[in-house]
Design a binder for these strands. Structure first.
Length: 993
RNA sequence: GCGGAUGUGGCGAAAUUGGUAGACGUGCCAGACUUAGGAUCUGGUGCCGUAAGGCGUGUGGGUUCGAGUCCCUCCAUCCGCACCA
């Protein structure tokens, strides 16, 4: 039977592609690798139990279009897919059900794979990676070991191996190196002392230099999940996943020293072709700020000092107090006896306020004087030291110098505690009741800084601090080292064991992978250990002895920080990626994914890449050259409105005692809201009750009604119930369908619009099961085909935008594909094309379309391509064009968007199956692109007076001639002869008289 | 508060360098054809107005012969960060 039926061939081609490995990317040495490479990458999904909804494929479709387009352009395209398969949801499910996360993960991946394949993506499935496979995470563990065995040399500004560090220690002691990290944690020793160190001492000495290290730190502890969360996994004081409360807790944690790379991570952004929003977020997250470190000697212990970080050393003469964070280390020692108790009390209260409370109410000003005084480095004045919870322990030194006149928070604090406010920059006005925070103005009241502009005062102040040894210029970063351990099961085990002397050591490379042990339950142990504490035999065997393994596992972002490298050489047993493959594929040319990974995954990946580069393991500059964020497709929830009414048949039969619920169509709801609840009593509401075929009215009878139902009371507010969107079409509720959906609707009454329909309200929000607004691709593919869905998702609008899903528009692209099909099947019969030569009109359509599609894909404007193809199809239909010369090239142009249809037609055109994807992009013949005619505005002395149409091929002299000969000059230039005629090609003619 | 983005018909949107605003698609209206279907085809559809005509790209202003597009002002919505010294 003829006609366009995608189900006839879509599955066929998908199977063909899979069986023939049509989209296999060639690695160096394989046939095809001589072509230029192009690497198109999707952010791989976490395979959740819910499967894909229509929002998920949006980015995959776009990247697939780019991949397919690049194949036509002659590239060797790497376009892989895999699964980020370690993660919390599978673990939570495992805790609840006892199911091994491996099983649920495997099932979910199977479902994802099936759904992805039904959409016709051109992935090279041979390269699939799964982060939870031991073959994969062995290399995640291996990279961790490299981090564990490296340190960061500030002089060379790169990561280096520990061997080089210990060599340096042996030659020059601890003074021989400058390393990233906190020197306060590190021992000072000479080369001679190093030589005498035992192995244990050496390991202890080296530990605080490592790029993967353990430390006691305040972490976000989530009791409900039994694990530590990173800052970006905590939103508003609750966990991003699950929404459980999160508290601050001091714990020993594995950390990665990402801060060592802060400056390079910041500077690298400049050369990336990424959305500004993402780059800006990363800059913000890294938070570089220039300023100075200033030492304030303590009055009673002049050998000790409080060091502050400030970006405003120019305001030093305006300091009226110092403030330290409640968590500040030497706080207790700082206090005078008189104030010790009060301070302790304050600190206790401050610490017990949860992070959320502290953030929620920044307005409340609190603090406590410590009794201590420091000495001002320039004036020698006494500066009181306070403790205040507006000072953050984690930023700078945990101590600030307060300049109330020029800082909003200091100002509020000083007003509250009646501390002095000393203006030192012109611009402060005490009458305004606010600080003057502009970074401009002239300095006064400030000794040697007087008269300087802020900018110069900053340099001068720093110079003075450095001269007197009381401080120095300093650059501070907001970025914190990344916590790298999770107290949970479903993640990569850290390849670490603890030797008899208690030191943490990496396991030998030959013992990788360290595979997850089987355990009986996935919860933390009774005594609060991570789930791995349940494993029996979780011990490292070395020389016949057994040592305990680390119990925490890696965070979710470990595996995703390097997966794009594994795709290059996915099954290499000897190396995480071979040198040749890494060198060949290089950087990812085009990376597509959600903006939610802006500061997590995308920053960690860059960090790992820079680290691997320092070790000489990768050869590019950055992992992802070009990045694009696809927007989210939102659901359109359908809402029905329910009121409780008392009602009966006819006036006499009202049963006052029985309130029944009634579902009312949207318009009645609006009337009720407008008129208030009384309107059901006071005003006529006419509508049909669905199954009784009578009118519901109030007070007044209607002549047409056979039986009357009186609503006499509305006892409750209108309640809104979200209903399954698959039972709603264009806001019209399928009442029979909804009756079967839920019991509460089964015997419900529905008040209909006069035309007999029941309308739902709508709300646009994230797709989620609980809102019943999820639309899955499966039914749509089944009904309209994958090609239609692909085209439609692109047609929806600009890729980056957030947009609501609306299934009804799908019919438009279905029609387009059917029409395209018909160009090849005249009269909707058999495949038949004529061999006639194309007319100029047809060639104009053809070449215009080839160019338009090419240009639009190049500039990543995916939506306008669909329109262009629709217009071409409609125009060729109107011309009744069924010519091979015109239509064959269009099949290639269509292929990235509708690959199944293209394959089908390509085969019918007589080509070998599966070859359309590599057919060269048709050449554009420019001569067919020009317009027939162009309208020129005609102006006299720059004032437009008229317009004239010229042939598009008309030259400037020809146009001048026509203008001169026309009555234009006589009419608008009052007959004056033209001094000069200026022709702007395609734009305008200006006559100067 | 800081940073980023976006405002165009009933709806999704287009207009790539300033040059006929609203292409294309939905939705709606009318018609054709049909053993009424969520099929196909044709025409119409920015707003006001019977019409002539007028008004129209968030607001107000500016540059220009000409502004959705460039400049300034304000407003609204969304996203990210947020006591970062």
């Amino acid at each position: 039977m003829p006609g366009y039926h995608p189900s006839d061939f879509e599955k066929k081609w998908q199977a063909h592609w899979l069986n023939h490995k049509t989209f296999r990317a060639a690695n160096p040495g394989q046939p095809g690798a001589d072509r230029p490479k192009y690497y198109v990458l999707d952010m791989f999904p976490y395979p959740s139990g819910a499967g894909l909804h229509v929002g998920h494929p949006l980015g995959y479709i776009a990247s697939d279009i780019v991949a397919r387009y690049k194949r036509h352009m002659g590239y060797n395209v790497l376009h892989p897919m895999g699964f980020d398969s370690f993660g919390l949801p599978a673990e939570q499910y495992a805790i609840q059900t006892g199911q091994h996360p491996e099983n649920t993960t495997r099932d979910n991946i199977a479902r994802y794979t099936e759904q992805l394949q039904s959409l016709g993506f051109s992935y090279d499935w041979d390269r699939e990676v799964r982060t939870s496979n031991a073959d994969y995470y062995r290399w995640t563990q291996w990279i961790f070991l490299q981090l564990f065995n490296s340190w960061y040399d500030l002089d060379a500004n790169r990561a280096r191996s520990l061997k080089e560090l210990t060599d340096a220690f042996g030659a020059g002691g601890s003074a021989a190196v400058r390393a990233a990290g906190d020197d306060a944690d590190r021992a000072v020793f000479t080369a001679g002392q190093w030589q005498m160190f035992t192995e244990h001492q050496r390991l202890e000495t080296v530990a605080p230099y490592r790029l993967a290290y353990q430390t006691e730190t305040y972490v976000n502890w989530c009791p409900a999940l039994g694990t530590v969360l990173s800052n970006d996994e905590v939103k508003d004081g609750v966990s991003e996943r699950g929404g459980y409360p999160v508290e601050r807790r001091l714990m020993a944690q594995w950390m990665l020293r990402i801060t060592a790379f802060a400056d390079r991570l910041l500077r690298g952004l400049d050369q990336l072709d990424w959305p500004d929003a993402v780059k800006e977020m990363q800059r913000n997250w890294i938070g570089r700020s220039e300023g100075a470190e200033v030492r304030f000697a303590l009055e009673y212990r002049p050998t000790d000092a409080l060091t502050v970080f400030t970006t405003r050393p120019d305001t030093l003469f305006g300091v009226s107090y110092l403030a330290v964070a409640p968590e500040f280390d030497g706080l207790d020692a700082l206090c005078t006896d008189e104030y010790r108790d009060a301070v302790a009390q304050y600190v206790y209260a401050a610490k017990n306020r949860s992070e959320r409370d502290r953030q929620a109410d920044v307005k409340t000003i609190s603090g406590q004087f410590t009794g201590a005084y420091a000495t001002h480095p320039f004036t020698g004045a006494r500066v009181p030291v306070w403790v205040a919870d507006y000072v953050l322990a984690g930023y700078g030194t945990g101590v600030v110098m307060a300049v109330p006149a020029h800082d909003t928070r200091d100002y509020a604090f000083a007003r509250h505690f009646e501390l002095p406010i000393v203006p030192v920059i012109e611009g402060y006005d005490s009458a305004l009741n606010e600080a003057y925070t502009e970074k401009s103005g002239r300095v006064f009241n400030s000794g040697f800084l007087d008269g300087l502009e802020v900018k110069h005062a900053i340099t001068a102040a720093i110079a003075e601090l450095e001269k007197t040894g009381q401080g120095a210029g300093r650059i501070n970063f907001r970025l914190r080292d990344a916590i790298f351990g999770r107290q949970r099961y479903w993640g990569e085990p850290l390849p670490i064991y603890y030797a008899a002397d208690g030191t943490a050591r990496g396991i030998a490379e030959k013992d990788l992978p360290l595979t997850l042990p089987e355990i009986d339950e996935y919860k933390p142990t009774q005594d609060g250990n991570p789930p791995l504490g349940r494993a029996t035999d979780w011990k490292y065997e070395k020389n016949g002895a057994h040592f305990p393994f680390e119990l925490s596992t890696m965070p979710g972002w470990a595996g995703s920080s390097w997966y794009y490298l594994r795709y290059m050489d996915p099954s290499n047993p000897n190396r995480f990626v071979s040198e040749e493959a890494e060198k060949y594929w290089g950087e990812v040319d085009f990376y597509l994914g959600g903006a939610e990974h802006a500061t997590g995954h995308l920053l960690y990946s860059r960090f790992w890449y820079l680290f691997l580069k320092d070790l000489g393991l990768v050869t590019g500059e950055e992992p992802f050259r070009k990045l694009l964020n696809q927007g989210m497709i939102l659901g359109r929830s359908s809402i029905v409105y329910r009121v409780n009414v008392m009602w009966g048949l006819g006036l006499d039969s009202i049963d006052n005692s029985i309130a029944r619920s009634l579902f009312i169509s949207r318009d009645f709801k609006e009337r009720l809201v407008k008129g208030g609840m009384e309107s059901l009593e006071g005003k006529r509401i006419i509508g049909f009750l669905e199954h009784e075929q009578v009118r519901l009215e109030t007070e007044e009878f209607s002549e047409q009604s056979v039986e009357l139902i009186h609503a006499i009371d509305v006892s409750t507010d209108i309640s809104e119930i979200k209903v399954d969107v698959s039972r709603v079409d264009n806001d019209v509720l399928d009442i029979n369908g909804i009756r079967q959906w839920r019991d509460e609707f089964n015997n419900a009454e529905f008040l209909l619009e006069p035309d007999g329909r029941f309308l739902c309200g709508a709300e646009v929000e994230k797709m989620s099961k609980s809102k019943h607004n999820v639309v899955t691709p499966d039914d749509l593919v089944e009904k309209s085909g994958a090609d239609a869905l692909r085209c439609y998702e692109m047609f929806l609008g600009p890729l980056e935008q957030y947009k609501p899903w609306n299934t009804s528009g799908l019919s438009g692209v279905s029609t387009f594909l059917r029409r395209f099909w018909r160009l090849f099947h005249p009269e909707d019969g058999d495949f038949a094309l004529t061999e006639e030569a194309a007319t100029p009109a047809e060639l104009k359509i053809l070449h215009g379309t080839i160019k338009k599609v090419r240009d639009d894909v190049e500039r990543l404007s995916f939506n306008t391509v669909v329109s262009a193809l629709m217009i071409a199809t409609n125009e060729l239909s109107a011309l009744n064009c069924h010519k091979r010369a015109v239509l064959a090239p269009l099949v290639i142009v269509l292929e990235p968007y509708a690959p199944h249809l293209a394959e089908e037609l390509w085969a019918k055109l007589g080509h070998a199956p599966g070859t359309v994807s590599t057919a060269p992009w048709p050449a554009v013949e420019e001569k067919y692109l020009v317009a027939d005619e162009v309208t020129y505005p005609l102006a006299v002395n720059g004032k437009v007076r008229s317009e004239m149409v010229f042939a598009a091929t008309a030259t400037a002299p020809e146009i001048e001639e026509v203008v001169r000969a026309s009555d234009f000059l006589a009419k608008y230039a009052e007959g004056k002869a033209a001094k000069k005629i200026i022709v702007v090609p395609g734009r305008m003619v200006n006559v100067v008289v």
